[in-house]
Simulated assay, not measured.
Amino acid sequence: MSLDSSAPLQDASRRSASLRLRLGLAMPVVVGAMVGWFEWRDGGFEPLLPGLTHAVELVAALSVALMLLVEALLLRPLRQLASGCEAMESAPAPQAADMPEPRLGAELDRIGHAMHRAQGSLWQHDHEARELRRQLAEQRDLLERAHAALEANQRELASLARIDALTGLTNQRAFDESLRREFKRAQRQRGLLALAVLDLDEFKQFNERHGTAVGDATLQRVAALLNERFKRDTDIVARLGGEEFVALLPGCGMAEAQGVLELVREDLRALHLPDGRGDLTLSIGLAALSPAHPYLSAQALMQAADEALYIAKHAGRDRLSLAA
């Protein structure tokens, strides 16, 4: 009877001794399969390949953690159980009533519950990792959108800083920069540069008769007319403020610019305004830089055009005056 019962106990002892080795070899394979399955379920194997190093590190860490958990909850009790079996083998055979079968069943139940908790913990960590990746992706997307919106706002502000809001023409700040640049270019190349200052006659009274809304619409139509007449890529038309406009014409001499500006005056008379044809007139002062007629600075050229406009106003308006 003792020989027949000792053979299974010795076999159980040998199996428990090799169980740790087999678990140590099988654990990375099982964990790797589980991690691969989770990644495949999230998006296929293509996203897994760039993060292969991370996946290997994750498998190694989980394997070590599970091995330590199995060691504490399974292997150690099994070793204790094997030691108890060996002690029982050397001791006299107990009576059937003294066999600790209920205690052994409770121990196995405890081990089973511990393994179940470990599996649940693994699933929970995987879920938290996937949720963290999703939140990071959302934050990255929000940052990219905010950056794109900021760049768009900066471009819009830069554009508004150089454009007149009412007419869409270049504003005075941008015009002053263009005037200095083109004046230096004309001086360096000994070229031509014409500058005309245009002012709507008695526009204040026009606004009083028709209202500011009609006045604003009229300024927009005048701006469109100037854009139609000065269509070269190098021409610059700007609104200096109120009813005053300016045209900078690189490469144009006095005579050529005068001809175009006279056409502008005729076009303005032909506009259909609230009081009919000829409701508004235009006074123009024109100055031109040339090798035969130089100016010391861009400000001097602008001053000459302003003085010519002053002469046109005091000579009866609705005319073009040339700088001396």
Rank of each mutant, 00 (worst) to 15 (best):
Asp235Leu: 01
Lys204Phe: 00
Phe245His: 02
Pro250His: 00
Gly168His: 06
Pro250Tyr: 01
Leu248Met: 12
Asp201Ala: 12
Ser178Glu: 07
Arg232Gln: 01
Pro250Gly: 04
Gly215Ser: 05
Phe183Lys: 10
Thr167Lys: 04
Asp199His: 13
Ile163Gly: 02
His210Trp: 15
Gly211Arg: 05
Leu249Met: 15
Ala224Pro: 07
Glu208Tyr: 12
Thr218Met: 03
Glu244Asn: 13
Phe175Thr: 04
Arg181His: 13
Ala247Glu: 05
Ala238Val: 04
Thr234Gly: 05
Ile236Thr: 10
Thr170Gly: 05
Gly251Asp: 04
Gln189Asp: 15
Ile236Asn: 01
Ala213Pro: 02
Arg181Asp: 06
Phe183Met: 09
Ala217Trp: 08
Thr218Val: 10
Asp235Pro: 04
Phe245Asp: 00
Arg190Trp: 11
Gly168Met: 10
Val237Asn: 11
Cys252Ile: 01
Gln220Tyr: 08
Leu166Phe: 01
Ala174Met: 10
Arg232Ala: 01
Phe183Ser: 11
Gly168Leu: 11
Glu182Gln: 15
Leu226Val: 04
Asn207Asp: 14
Glu202Gln: 15
Leu219Thr: 12
Gly191Val: 08
Leu248Gln: 06
Phe245Pro: 05
Leu200Cys: 15
Leu200Gly: 10
Leu240Phe: 00
Ala247Gln: 06
Asn207Phe: 00
Leu195Asn: 07
Phe230Glu: 06
Asp216Arg: 15
Phe206Ile: 05
Gly215Cys: 04
Glu243His: 13
Leu166Gly: 03
Leu248Phe: 14
Asp233Met: 03
Arg221Ala: 12
Lys204Gln: 05
Lys231Tyr: 06
Val222Met: 13
Ala255Lys: 08
Leu198Glu: 08
Asn227Phe: 00
Thr234Lys: 02
Leu200Met: 14
Ala174Leu: 14
Thr218Pro: 06
Gly168Ala: 10
Lys184Leu: 15
Gly168Cys: 11
Ala174Ser: 12
Gly241Trp: 10
Asn227Pro: 00
Leu169Gln: 13
Asp164Ser: 13
Arg232Pro: 02
Ala224Asp: 14
Ala247Leu: 07
Arg209Val: 08
Ala194Gly: 07
Ala196Met: 05
Ser178Gln: 11
Thr234Glu: 12
Ile163Gln: 13
Leu249Lys: 06
Arg185Ser: 03
Arg173Thr: 13
Ile163Asp: 08
Thr212Lys: 13
Leu179Val: 11
